[in-house]
Computed example of a mutant assay.
Amino acid sequence: MKHIVAVYGTLKRGYSNHHLLDKACYIGPDTLTSLTLYDLGPYPGALAKPSTGVSVEVYAINGPLLAMLDELEGYDPGADKASLYQRRKIQTRHGLAWVYLYNRPVRSRQRIADGSW
């Protein structure tokens, strides 16, 4: 396992895409006050904006799994600015971790005030 990722939506335990993390190593939870969460309908999106905190789960994953997550999140490393999400490093209590940040306007989207989707 060479990558650390912080997830906040459908990849969390109990949600529809968590099965992708079945072989990942769960490190622990965190609350990130450097993110703000928005309701996008079938999934949430986070922006790098201060808030009271977004609940995340932190995992250690390998390179092939990171590529699978990139595909799930609509992130293309070769077209970062055009991607649905952008992958960025963010500080967690478990160290630096990749997080997927929503890359579209959120003007008409509801902010999730409690930070948990």
Rank of each mutant, 00 (worst) to 15 (best):
E57A: 09
R88H: 03
L69S: 06
M1W: 03
L72P: 04
L20M: 04
Y26I: 02
G14V: 12
L40V: 07
I112S: 05
H94I: 01
Y38A: 05
L72F: 11
I4D: 11
T36C: 02
H19D: 15
S108G: 06
G115D: 00
I61A: 00
P64F: 15
S16E: 07
L72M: 14
S16I: 12
L96S: 10
V5E: 03
Y59N: 08
G53E: 14
D76N: 14
A46D: 13
G78R: 01
I90L: 10
Y75G: 04
G41K: 10
D30Y: 05
G63S: 15
I4S: 12
Y75H: 08
I27R: 12
S16N: 10
P77N: 05
L47W: 08
P64M: 10
T31A: 01
E57Y: 10
G63W: 10
H3D: 06
P50I: 07
R87V: 09
Y26C: 06
A24F: 03
Y100R: 08
Q86K: 13
Y8N: 04
V56F: 05
P29E: 03
D30N: 04
L47R: 13
H19R: 13
N62R: 02
D30C: 09
Y85V: 08
A97F: 02
R107L: 14
I61C: 02
T31E: 14
S34L: 12
E73K: 09
D80H: 13
N17L: 09
P29W: 03
S16C: 10
G9M: 01
A60K: 02
R13V: 12
G74N: 04
K81G: 11
K2M: 01
A6Q: 04
L72A: 07
H19C: 14
V99F: 08
K49A: 05
L69Y: 07
L35H: 01
T10D: 03
S55W: 14
S16R: 14
M68D: 13
I27N: 06
R93Y: 02
S51M: 05
I90Y: 12
R104A: 00
Q110N: 09
N103R: 07
T36Y: 03
G63A: 13
S108N: 13
A48W: 09
A67Q: 11
K23G: 15
S83M: 02
P42V: 11
R13C: 05
V7M: 01
D22H: 03
T92C: 03
T52Q: 09
R87P: 00
L84Y: 12
G95F: 05
K49Q: 07
I4W: 14
R88G: 00
K12L: 08
R104D: 00
A113Y: 13
D39P: 09
H18M: 11
L65C: 10
A67E: 14
L11I: 00
L20P: 14
N62Y: 13
L96C: 11
K89P: 02
K49F: 06
V5N: 06
S34I: 14
N17T: 10
L69D: 08
K2I: 00
Q110F: 06
D70C: 12
L21E: 01
L21G: 05
G63L: 04
D80Y: 11
Y26E: 06
S16H: 10
R93L: 01
G95I: 11
R109G: 07
V56T: 12
L40T: 09
H94S: 07
R88D: 00
E71P: 15
R111F: 01
D80N: 09
A97W: 02
Q91S: 06
A48L: 11
I112D: 01
T52R: 10
G14S: 12
V56H: 15
A46V: 02
D114M: 12
L11W: 02
